[in-house]
Nucleic acid binder design. Structure first.
Length: 192
DNA sequence: TGAATGATCAGCT
DNA sequence: GCTGATCATTCAA
């Protein structure tokens, strides 16, 4: 079942935890790919020095200031595309970074896009999963309640959530210590 | 207009 | 474990 708008209109931390164990689906021209979300990080722009939206509204972060349920896509380190799910109501810029997936559909397509066969290597990092799923900057602002890129509930999956510190945000001072990274316990597809 | 920098990855040691 | 790649975005002037 596809997640409805109301799912995304809640606080970023709640949405982040609830995204673990859900299925991210991309219905692309080449074919359909999907994976279970096993690792996320929450970024609450109002109070979080590590968030892109913390300093205020800019052209890049504009979509995070809108209503939840849309995609925030950006390029990092000149090479890697990262995908976020916008959460909360308009004017509150919460975003959830999707950091890792367990591939479940369109495996051959993912393997071809990534030039790797090992399932664990396909989606165990934010830049890797966007490659495997063929998510690009064209998806900036995409409606996750639409038919091309969306998230649905997964059957036969029991979430066991562990909270840890976020990765690579040491520049953010105290915010680097927040336990806002959520992972599925003992899942081999999480990063590191 | 220009300079600094990063929510990472792959490849090497 | 460590480091270089590489460029959109941001901010200062």
């Amino acid at each position: 079942m596809k997640l409805k708008r109301e799912f995304y209109l809640r606080g970023g931390l709640e949405v982040a935890k609830d995204l673990i164990g859900k299925k991210l689906v991309h219905n692309s021209a080449e074919g359909l790919t999907a994976g279970i979300i096993v690792e996320v990080e929450a970024y609450l722009g109002k109070i979080d020095a590590a968030a892109h939206s913390f300093k205020g509204r800019t052209a890049r972060t504009e979509v995070t200031f809108g209503a939840g349920g849309f995609a925030y896509i950006y390029l990092i380190y000149g090479k890697n595309i990262c995908m976020n799910v916008v959460a909360n109501v308009a004017e509150i810029p919460d975003a959830i970074l999707i950091r890792a997936l367990q591939p479940v559909e369109g495996l051959e397509l993912m393997q071809a896009r990534r030039q790797k066969n090992n399932l664990r290597e396909l989606c165990n990092g934010p830049g890797k999963l966007t490659q495997a799923m063929a998510i690009t900057k064209n998806h900036y602002g995409a409606d996750l309640c639409g038919n091309e890129l969306f998230i649905e509930t997964a059957e036969n999956f029991q979430p066991e959530i562990v909270a840890t510190k976020r990765i690579n945000v040491d520049y953010a001072g105290d915010a680097a210590n927040f336990l806002w990274r959520f992972i599925q316990k003992n899942n081999p597809c999480v990063s590191k």
